[in-house]
Design a binder for these strands. Sequence first.
DNA 1: ATCTTTATCTTGACAGTGTCAAATTATGAT
DNA 2: ATCATAATTTGACACTGTCAAGATAAAGAT
Lengths: 201, 201
Amino acid sequence: MPSSGTQNYHHGDLRSALLDAAATRIENQGIEGLSLRKLADDVGVSRSALYHHFRDKNALLNAVAANGFANWIAMTSESGGDESVPAPVRMKQFVYGYVHWAVEHPQLYDLMFGRPIWKNDLADDELKDVAYPAFQYMLSLITHWQQQGLLMADKPALRQTQVIWATLHGLAKLVTDGVYADSSHIDEMCDCAVNMLLPKQ
Amino acid sequence: MPSSGTQNYHHGDLRSALLDAAATRIENQGIEGLSLRKLADDVGVSRSALYHHFRDKNALLNAVAANGFANWIAMTSESGGDESVPAPVRMKQFVYGYVHWAVEHPQLYDLMFGRPIWKNDLADDELKDVAYPAFQYMLSLITHWQQQGLLMADKPALRQTQVIWATLHGLAKLVTDGVYADSSHIDEMCDCAVNMLLPKQ
DNA sequence: ATCTTTATCTTGACAGTGTCAAATTATGAT
DNA sequence: ATCATAATTTGACACTGTCAAGATAAAGAT
């Protein structure tokens, strides 16, 4: 008889249960509010059961961040793939989408782009395999915009992508740190950013 | 006989000694590498002597960050006050100065602008009293540039300052996370940022 | 069915952390 | 000298991540 429903010694799918519990706990209390022991309590399991599914606490955080990037790519590619709207509008939508996603997932965003993961090569291969395509997707978008004449042609698309991402990330930081909770200010900042980044004619 | 030189029970100037030791330790191992007990060992004092000079570990970090802001303001105002050079050059110098300061003090920069301090109102008044003028100084600079016609006149200076800071911070993050150690790339990114942010005529 | 193997989970333990209360010691004023 | 006050230490507590060893359940082989 397969183990379904009843409380078993073997949890069944502890790995994803831990991932879910960790994600919600991070969304509520942030990264530093996540303790492996409390997490084990949430799932109803012993404190060191986790180590059979993740090498480290860092490995767990990496996995949560990787899910975040997958989520981010999903939302970005669905809102950016509409070829019918003109490029300037799409860029504006992209900026709005980026910042608002950060507003809606502030703690997850902080985990994904925060230093605890990225500083000293603490990002494992699984995370890099999702995070790198995310940036690559942005690069392809911006390259496309450049070819359509939306951006300057005399500067490499890679550099312009880096600058645009830098701006988006800085804006996201302003809002996730709670400095600007007023959403009208957020939209004004996004508008201003688009106006400044787009070359005027 | 005044207590100078000899090892006393009273340290003499423990507060600033702790600040110095904390700053160097942070510069070497980062914020998360700073333990109050190791710090006490560095200074040659007991583990909880610190609590007579700082309410918290967070209070200590706040003080270190406040020193960082004072340092930042000093370097920025000395390199930006030269009225003889034209505005576009000064803006470029400002961007270079900001990013390179971050490169030279990566851990301190991370402490000053990182979330552990700013997220949940963990910044005390002493820190706010230095950090706010820092942003205010940036705002005054950019307002001046706007009045000289360097920036668009139809967008409020506050919003443009926020966008410019966002870009600078994002660039700083790219380099402090070690993604771009090559300094030539850093300069290219700065150049590209200035080109994109300045309105073309 | 029984034995063996393997994966999973638990318990006990260790070193490390921030922080507080109480005891200890030095300084400064009278 | 005495006393009050400030500075520092010691002991202790709860908490953290992590590992080793033991216990338990599932799966595979015979």
